[in-house]
Design a protein around this nucleic acid. Sequence first.
DNA 1: GCGATCAGCT
DNA 2: CACAGCTGATCGC
Length: 723
Amino acid sequence: MMWNNDGDDDDDFQIPPSSSQLSLRKPLHPTNGSISQHHHRPPRKKPRLSRYPGKENIAPAPEFTSSPCFSSGSYALGSSSSTPDCSLLDCIPSSVDCSAGDSGEPFCSLAAETEEEHVLVGGKEKGECFKANHEGYSCNSMEARLLLKSRIRLDEEEDESDSESELDVLIKLCSEGRDDSIQCPLCETDISALSEEERQVHTNNCLDTQAPQQGSLRKCEKSSSLIEESVDDPVQLVNDISPVLKWVRSLGLAKYEDVFLREEIDWDTLQSLTEEDLLSIGITSLGPRKKIVNALSTLREEACAASSAEAQAQSLSNSSHVTDRQRERSTYRKASEPKKPTANKLITEFFPGDATKIPKKLPKEPVAEQSCRRAAVRRNGNNGKSKVIPQWNCVPGTPFRVDAFKYLTRDCCHWFLTHFHLDHYQGLTKSFSHGRIYCSLITAKLVNMKIGIPWERLQVLNLGQKVSIAGVDVTCFDANHCPGSIMIRFEPANGKAVLHTGDFRYSEDMLNYLTGSPISSLVLDTTYCNPQYDFPKQEAVIQFVVESIQAEAFNPKTLFLIGSYTIGKERLFLEVARVLREKIYINPAKLKLLECLGFSKEDMQWFTVKEEESHIHVVPLWTLASFKRLKHIANRYTNRYSLIVAFSPTGWTSGKSKKKSPGRRLQQGTIIRYEVPYSEHSSFTELKEFVQKVSPEVIIPSVNIDGPESASAMVSMLLTESV
DNA sequence: GCGATCAGCT
DNA sequence: CACAGCTGATCGC
């Protein structure tokens, strides 16, 4: 299973609870009234917030900024044990009045307080103070409903002595006892030994005979009435849905349990769900939706290949018990030895040379040819551009070049461009006269627009469509890197197919494209070819960003910044726009660029070039790189915004202990920066899986695997795991 | 003067 | 640490 395959991934996830979660307290605990009953706050010590008369025109998004329900500060919640120092009086003026006012004063006097205090004031507490106003959103918002479950979880953690709500009980009932034993939801006796049918008979009997006296049933009845009035047999419902809920929870999506419960989705129905279905039942966030879709496809595969898969899994699990010594030996196996099954192949084994001494410059070749991307050897002649072309820019068995515009030569007239990133098209200028450029439609549009290459020089390759170029069959596929990025399969006359990945992020869909001829050479994007590069799926990171924004968005004077390259990371801010139902500001140049990327009209409506229409701005990534720059931006918007929340989607955020953390949060004064590992390259795990599936004879790395640790790290890869 | 290239920086 | 690309200096035409 692609998601969550290491079981404790989710422990690393620190998705901040959103304000909407807080907002649900009232419907959940109607008798509790104010949250302050949960958290006893000491009296206010000093005033923190200033009042703001008047009204400021900060384009309120429907049901979002207009509603103060997005009020919880995520991190305030996390530290709720330390009693926040804030009172109702503190909160009211800022949240109500600071949505107005061009007075220029910040909504709270940060200078006098620590950063943590600021978060507390600007976060949870203020949100709580406005509880009374938030029903408008919380009752209607799908997000709010989806988050209901996690709110309950949070409550449990905060105060375990709290009596459980009916829903808690039901959820527990549904999920408990599935790991080791299965209990009758009514009499709670262990029925694991019984067959599925017998279990149902048992519970039905319990229902008939004992139910009226059993507290459990009452719980069931109450609980089910929370979900659907017309449930005929609550116990049956629990039995049917329980595995589904457990499965959902195993994906780390416990908060969507109530959706599945509400829709009464049983195990069979689950397997037939499409992404559209998921959307329609209310799983609107891309991240969780994709996660479920992926897991479902795995589920279906497993169901299909039931017996053979089991046998294979058994053999693979056996193989994982080999000793380290055995692994070493297999790693050190000489190239002359017979090729072993792909499933047991190391990435290292695909590289030329002795695996025990992986050369720092790969592949092994004369020193003069070990040119890397940046340090090319200059030579005279040939228009001053002739340099030694790295192997990854060539296609074995063909005269073609890929992303090799830094190495223009007259002996080639077929130039492929995998995607429009500077380090791949560098050297390409409008004076290019070396033949034709083959690329995707999107890349062609960009090359034409940004560099000025005439269309006559551009040959568009349609995805999945085989064309013959100079006697070589060429097919390209989506590389899942940036818009327009492709990986290309070349099938020369010699029968030795070459797959050039360009830059790519592995996706299981890719395997569908590769069913044709076996790949002899794989030119692989090895950017993150090191086990230390293990980051979450994009969906998880998107979800993190969305929830972080929700958590901080209580304040209409908050400016959100999302970093972006020329192209790439579009999905991130597009999804933010979709989920928050708020337009995103981009500058006109960026809009022009986005118009080349083939987004639907529906998607494009989320962008605006009018700054005042949105408080979520897309900015170049480097402007977020330092707090100094961010402060500069803050100064520019002193009147409109008092808080800046920036998201830096870098390829990989450091943190060896938190290997799959979806992000970390840094703060200086009124500026918060999240660094999120939104990667458009494959992680090491993904590379392993991809290589294993493609099973090439030779791998040509596109990025040198440098660094002192690389050799040993690569060798210690050991056996590739079962997939 | 303009485009291309490179080093430095983030 | 790495990506992907900006800025500014310099070079060549």
